[in-house]
Nucleic acid binder design. Structure first.
Lengths: 125, 125, 125, 125
DNA sequence: GTGGTCTAGACCACC
DNA sequence: GTGGTCTAGACCACG
């Protein structure tokens, strides 16, 4: 269900956050559905429970999940996840455009690339 | 000439690399022009010479500059810098498009945003 | 009669204690009136009977209710509940005033806020 | 400089956050001043460095401090700390007023208590 | 069994 | 030396 990339320079807990958010966005985890327990997921991924816990804490802080002592962790409002992610994308796009202008890439070229990328992975959708 | 942001979470040597590459791209540093000496730049920016050295080593590894023993470091082929940066931008754009599709952002919306960002900072150009 | 908030971070038994005390204060539970049985209340709220039991034990410890073997639990002296609660409020207010002084909030501002809060929810009363 | 209460039910890292914020508010820690290093403070308080780290991370998340790899942690904008705290106090006060109304405490009594508390610790100021 | 906290000790990147 | 991440293993409160 979740694949970690140990070669990735980003910390594991950050990868976990992203992967879990992705699962919510793609519908694999639905609202109020129970997430795997800290210990189970740790065993599945063969990493330390503390690392899972850290990811869950951050997900809760962001309002993506809610945890209940003695019961487990559950998916909160998915729409807020989508909104957050959309905002992040806008920010990334803005800085990317700034960089594109630095290398004198023209608007037309940038847009053409965007459209190409949008279409080339259509099979995944 | 160079302003570092100590509060930026990225390592200083990385900021340095980016800033120096930017200076090459914008024409402030021309081909075969001499870069400031490690010690001078360290003094100017009041940071550790080791940090400058690390940035220069990385810039040389990427082929952006070349060093001559006893003479200093010099700007190499700027066009290659531009090409590299362009490739990085393409990769970033590809992953960004993938994320956009995850949050169900439509191609039209993405392109419209891109065009907006291209135009809104025209004054800075 | 009682609504629990499973997403509330406080333990359920603590919420139960507060809610039951509130019911006594507002007159919904009168002196010597019988409380619902542990099993009934557990069924009504669909939570574990142990949790109800824990709340009842604590309520008895505080002298808010008394239990008779084989008959059930009953409301004790409500006035003592009110007195207790009042004392807690005084303590909270004292520490809140200390904090207010730490952020250089003036007495006048604090009192004005208090008066505002007293009046703004009058409709609920 | 910092005293922890091991009997306090709140987690140590939370107490630490509060104490450090207090030190900023009372002027013992000034803007851009260096905080004790994670390891030093851990040794001073005889607790685990991880616990200090956790407090620092949360303080940084709230924008109270900023950390620089290899250099240390530093006090950020104190005014924002004060503003945050003030908001928390208002929220506490609002719920406290609601509770006061539940026990039929009159506005006049509440205000009188507030004023008394404001004056009785004047010696500490 | 579940989440939440803490300790002890390790390794890394950065300066 | 600094902060940042991770592991291993423990204990507690809750249901």
């Amino acid at each position: 269900m979740i694949l970690l990339d140990m070669k990735d320079r980003r910390p594991i807990y950050e990868q976990l956050i992203e992967k879990l958010a992705d699962l919510m966005l793609c519908g694999a985890l639905r609202e109020d559905e129970k997430l795997p327990s800290v210990r189970n997921l740790a065993a599945d991924l063969s990493i330390n429970p503390n690392t899972i816990q850290r990811a869950y804490v951050e997900l809760e802080r962001r309002g993506y999940i809610y945890s209940i002592q003695g019961k487990g962790s559950f998916v909160a409002n998915i729409e807020s996840v989508r909104t957050d992610r959309k905002e992040e994308i806008q920010n990334s796009l803005r800085t990317l455009v700034l960089q594109a202008k630095d290398v004198e890439m023209k608007k037309e070229e940038f847009v053409a690339l965007s459209e190409k990328f949008f279409e080339e992975d259509m099979g995944d959708d």
